[in-house]
């Protein structure tokens, strides 16, 4: 369970997050929607400690991981704690091969047998990555790079997966493939997912609940099915 409690984040004088509260329960896919510049990426960065909070705290399974008062869990420890972020723009290591990228995802694991098993699991789930394992990751297509970014993060078996616009720049058919994989990961492994997407329709269709963010504030949250039929949402985010 992830609980974000009344957090604020500032970039200098600009307040990017204003008193944001958000909850992800076990086995849930939660989508976070909102226009460009609303503060979605900032929230994900704050969860993994890439931005500092100016107010509030964040708890993972009832244990505080961030606040303004105590020693924070450093970003490089978050994956050990079970929180993986697939960053905006995928963040693959383009000078490294596909399999080396996967190896980096296993950096926090020490058990060679476990690494081997995880690798096998990933290559079974993403056969295209197995085919391209010795290629430079930079030579993959956008969709393949997104698969790689997800597979790499899954290597460490996170309990919570944060995805920042996984569909960005992909052809519609690839977006659908990526979304199906996300649902599958959630169903089979029970991984909690926080899905940030600008493609509101697709995000709501693939999630249980959704939060709507505007100018750094959560303005609405509900079951995804309810948000899909909400007249306000329809007007603002679903093109009528």
């Amino acid at each position: 369970m992830l609980l974000v409690k009344h957090i604020s984040v500032h970039y200098g004088k600009l307040q990017a997050l204003k008193d944001v509260t958000l909850l992800i329960k076990p086995h849930e896919i939660v989508s976070l929607i909102g226009a460009n510049g609303a503060g979605k990426t900032t929230l994900l960065r704050a969860i993994v400690g890439l931005e500092n909070l100016s107010k509030g705290d964040i708890l993972l399974d009832d244990k505080p991981i961030r606040s303004t008062s105590f020693e924070q869990v450093p970003t490089h420890r978050m994956i050990e704690k079970g929180v993986g972020l697939v960053p905006e723009g995928r963040g693959i290591f383009s000078d490294m091969t596909v399999v080396e990228n996967i190896d980096m995802g296993a950096y926090s694991l020490r058990d060679q047998y476990k690494i081997h098993q995880q690798k096998k699991k990933m290559f079974d789930r993403f056969p295209i990555l197995f085919e391209r394992r010795e290629q430079k990751a930079g030579s993959l297509s956008g969709g393949e790079q997104q698969m790689l970014a997800i597979a790499r993060t899954l290597m460490a078996s996170p309990r919570l997966l944060l995805l920042d616009e996984p569909g960005l720049g992909l052809a519609p058919i690839m977006v659908k493939q990526v979304m199906d994989i996300i649902s599958e990961i959630n169903k089979e492994d029970g991984v909690m997912i926080l899905l940030v997407e600008q493609n509101t329709h697709i995000a709501l269709r693939h999630s249980h609940r959704g939060y709507v963010m505007e100018n750094g504030k959560i303005v609405l949250s509900d079951e995804s099915s309810a948000l899909l039929t909400d007249p306000e949402i329809k007007k603002a985010y679903l093109g009528g």
């Binding site: 970003t75 994956i79 993986g84 972020l85 963040g91 290591f93 000078d95 950096y107």
Partner: peptide
């Protein structure tokens, strides 16, 4: 190549 992503990998 990408220090921020490297941190996310642990």
């Amino acid at each position: 190549e990408k220090p921020m992503v490297a941190q996310l990998m642990g």
